[in-house]
Amino acid sequence: MKPTRSVDRRADRSWSENAVRLIEADGLRSADTHLLRVELPDWSRWTDEAGNARGVDLYLKDESTHPTGSLKHRLARSLFLYAICNGWIGPDTTVIEASSGSTAVSEAYFAKLIGVPFVAVMTASTSPAKTALIERQGGRCHFVQRAGDVYDEAQRLEAELGGHFIDQFTMAERATDWRGNNNIAESIFAQLAQEDHPVPTWIVVGAGTGGTSATLGRYLRYRRHPTWLCVVDPENSVFLPAFESGDGTLTADTGSRIEGIGRPRVEPSFVSQVIDRMVGVPDEASIATARVVSERLGRRIGASTGTNLWAAFGLVAEMVEQRHAGSVVTLLCDSGDRYETTYFDDGWLASNEFDLAPARGVLDAFFDTGAWSV
């Protein structure tokens, strides 16, 4: 009889258990993000036939207050826990990601926390402020020229380095527990509990990986909330055309100019079936909204937040016109300080031939009268 073979890998568990402990401890040190109420003009309030005060409220979930400064901090934590618990990341694993910036910033943070190398594959056009943040966390930036090349290059580096391609675009929708466990959807509803409209009429989000919209859409259905999910899409992204046509094979030759959202292909984590409505937002509208709202808030917000708010303003105006009282919630994805040399630089706008005046006119009319003339 041949001898019995035994391969014992129990020693691998001690490293992974400690890595999970470090990430969980980091989460316990971090408070939840604020839900900010955005003050709307008087036209957002009215009195119904019974003499009751009614109105529409707008909220911003401020994800810029995470330790790494963006919504992607939640995703990065989930992706690392998912990969560690699946045994894909060990003490000597180089973690590789294809990212336009914010996800890589957050992933570099968690890689440093558990002591593994990190490489971010991104387009050369990514803002210098984001690459500096990645490098400050000990990550290495690896550049490609075309947005569509990041996937193949990340896979090539995975093979070359014997690492793990963490692949946010595939894993985002499955790494987060959409039923609860303090995900962003559960957090929003908990924070709205004592508001006039604790169950929002609309939640508005952008799609980069598709993970956030998938989490929110599934949660709304699971909890049976009568809340609609609106997903916004910038120019040069194929999510909206795919949603409209049902064709998940669509691709684009150029990438989105609004960092963090929009993709040149339909990502595996984009679950269109949980979305109730999509709105395409011109890049000039995204940037103009970021600038106008930054002036009103007294703090800079990024252009992806501008994309969210452009659609949210349209929904608020629609609800006011229909005398539909309720609330709208959207996300403040990251700080506009990361885009000082791009979206907030007049020279950069001129070199890219952006004219913000028409979009500013729409926004001025909205704040003055509540009209949405798009």
Rank of each mutant, 00 (worst) to 15 (best):
I275Y: 12
S245A: 11
G255Y: 09
E284S: 14
D247E: 12
G262N: 10
S286G: 12
I301E: 06
V266W: 03
R299L: 14
I301N: 04
I287Q: 06
I261T: 00
P264S: 10
G280E: 01
S245M: 05
I261A: 03
S269N: 06
D247S: 05
S294V: 08
G280T: 03
S269V: 06
V279G: 01
S272D: 14
T249G: 07
D276H: 15
R291E: 09
S286F: 11
Q273P: 00
V293K: 00
I261S: 01
R296G: 10
V292D: 05
Q273L: 00
E284G: 04
D253M: 01
P268K: 10
R263C: 10
G246N: 01
T289D: 01
S272E: 05
A285D: 14
D276K: 05
D283E: 15
D247M: 05
D283L: 06
S256H: 02
G246D: 06
V266M: 02
G260A: 04
A252Y: 10
S245H: 06
R265N: 09
R291I: 12
T251I: 03
S269L: 05
P282C: 01
E244L: 14
G248A: 13
G262A: 08
T254Q: 06
R296N: 09
R277G: 00
D276L: 02
Q273E: 15
A290Y: 13
S245W: 09
A285C: 15
T305K: 04
V266L: 02
R296C: 10
T289F: 02
T305M: 08
L297E: 06
V274R: 11
R296E: 06
T251V: 11
T305S: 15
Q273C: 03
L250M: 10
D253K: 02
L250D: 02
F270K: 13
I258S: 10
E284D: 15
S304G: 13
